[in-house]
Amino acid sequence: MKTQKPRRYGMVIDLDRCTGCGACMTACAAENNVAPGHAKATPRTGLTPMLVQRVSNGGAGADRREVFIPVTCMHCEHETPCVTVCPQQAVELDKATGIVNQMPQRCLGCRYCMTACAYHARYFNWWDPEWPVGMERTLNPGVAVRMRGVVEKCNFCHGRLHEAEDKAAAAGKAEIDPADYRPACVEACATQAIVFGDLNDPASDVRKASRHEDSFRLLARLGTEPKVYYRSKQEWVRGLAERGQQEVRRG
């Protein structure tokens, strides 16, 4: 049986195209059966595998500039911090796809990985998932419901990858059709600000975009080789990449 070549799924987000509409966040929540936010949830204690941050240059009036930065798991490739620290082996870097997977069944909820993650892209599930009566009928059957007490993160809509692989297998193909696998946020982006694909594929749009002179990665100096890239022609936006969250908040 033929096996697929190793892939390195990654993403390039063009910040100059992001309008901050939030469709990626809603699509992500609906696709991954994220329950409505608990009344006591805060931006850190709620679940937002995809979170669009609004950041300004600190100016006022005509000098003020803003940018929307969708932040998700960066799927770090080199000494992935969350993988390294997990005592339960509940996080793994899949060598076949490059996706950093979280296995909630193994997770003990110790939250070491959250501490290790430089991007605040991991969330602890503090509450049992609850939907209004009847709304559980709208849950996506391709994704298990997240339970309380585990850490959550983006997995590039792994359920969709499985569906694409099943489809390819049913057709007797070793390789999936790239068009069959697009995470929900990519599909939801009306301005096509998010490009997704195999970074190993020289012909892929994502590879070309990731090598564009405008592309950059957040906190690249840490050397974790994130596979989520950003693009912007604006100098001040690119300058945000190496600043810590506190510095960005202070503007």
Partner: peptide, 16 residues
């Protein structure tokens, strides 16, 4: 693509 509201619209029928 749809709008942000559209992606969750199928949940609305069970809104409290």
């Amino acid at each position: 693509a749809l709008c942000a509201l559209g992606y969750g619209a199928h949940q609305m029928n069970w809104h409290p």
